[in-house]
């Protein structure tokens, strides 16, 4: 189906769950007012990013009543939003919820927690173990959280699991200033999202936050990429924005006819070779 998507390029407050819930709910209502059928938020939209020891203080269980309002709103608009999720055995995940028709339809727990350079996620958070596509009213969707997308296998698995739409929730720090037009990190992401869409004949809906935490900027630039890798809408760089874009079912159909790489992808060959590599590594 054709539908309108909103990418909420917001500026969460670090460790302020109530303020961020209000910010997210207001953006959801704006999305409803503007006729969006789906709204995507950044990674950790409800908490902010450089949480460190705040992680347990801002975590929510999926049954937490503070999520009730978002569940209610999801009867009118589908919502993908990032938060810290706590489980009943007190593990804390960097998770994305997909809410639709009044319920949490899917939870993705970030698998690849970066711990290099300025990142230190795995010190504070537990690692997710799954990449699973799921059915939504827009067809089959796969969710990635920021660093997940830098692992080719993650997008590949979701596409092989039938996803035709990839949502990527991001809190990407801007860095790498040089003579070029954009920041190094922004340029790299733009290549990645476009190439992923093109390789897998999937739409990519990328939502990145803005604002500063301890001097580190988040560069925004949320974008909607068609299944041919072309960007059809892009948000402002380094400023809050509310990006609206149309997702065109026909574009997906035409691309899958024109470039039937996913049809021809041989899962059996991949699986057999991966098993061989695993065996040769001594496992």
């Amino acid at each position: 189906m054709d539908f309108l998507v909103a990418l909420a390029q917001i500026k969460p407050k670090l460790g302020c769950l109530d303020d961020n819930l209000a910010l997210v709910e207001a953006a959801v209502e704006k999305g409803i007012d503007q006729g969006a059928a789906l709204i995507v938020f950044p990674e950790l939209a409800l908490t902010g990013y450089f949480l460190k020891d705040l992680v347990p203080d801002v975590a929510l269980h999926v049954e937490d009543p503070r999520l009730t309002r978002l569940k209610e709103l999801s009867r009118r608009i589908s919502i993908a939003v990032g938060l810290v999720e706590v489980t009943s055995d007190y593990r804390f995940f960097n998770s994305a919820l997909y809410l639709e028709n009044g319920e949490i339809r899917h939870v993705h727990r970030k698998v690849y927690l970066p711990t290099y350079g300025l990142f230190d996620e795995q010190r504070y958070l537990a690692r997710g173990e799954h990449f699973r596509a799921f059915d939504s009213r827009f067809g089959r969707i796969g969710i990635l959280i920021c660093e997940d997308m830098w692992h080719l296998s993650a997008s590949y698995l979701l596409a092989m699991d039938g996803a035709t739409t990839l949502l990527c929730l991001s809190s990407s720090p801007g860095r790498g200033i040089n003579e070029g037009e954009g920041l190094g990190s922004a340029n790299a992401w733009q290549k990645l999202t476009s190439t992923t869409a093109m390789f897998l004949n999937c739409r990519v809906l990328y939502c990145n936050r803005v604002g500063y935490e301890d001097g580190i900027n988040f560069w925004g630039g949320s974008e909607l990429i068609g299944p041919n890798g072309e960007v059809t809408a892009r948000g402002a760089i380094l400023e809050e924005d509310f990006v609206m874009g149309r997702v065109d079912e026909g574009a997906l159909r035409r691309e899958r006819i024109f470039s039937p790489m996913m049809r021809d992808e041989n899962l059996h060959v991949t699986f057999r070779e991966l098993k061989r590599i695993d065996r040769e590594r001594g496992n």
Partner: peptide, 23 residues
């Protein structure tokens, strides 16, 4: 001197935004 040259418009935007936001 190429490696140190910067996109001054972008750098200015980041640094001005930094002062505004963090203050």
């Amino acid at each position: 001197m190429g490696v140190l040259n910067v996109n001054t418009a972008l750098l200015r935007k980041i640094l001005v935004g930094f002062v505004r936001d963090e203050v």
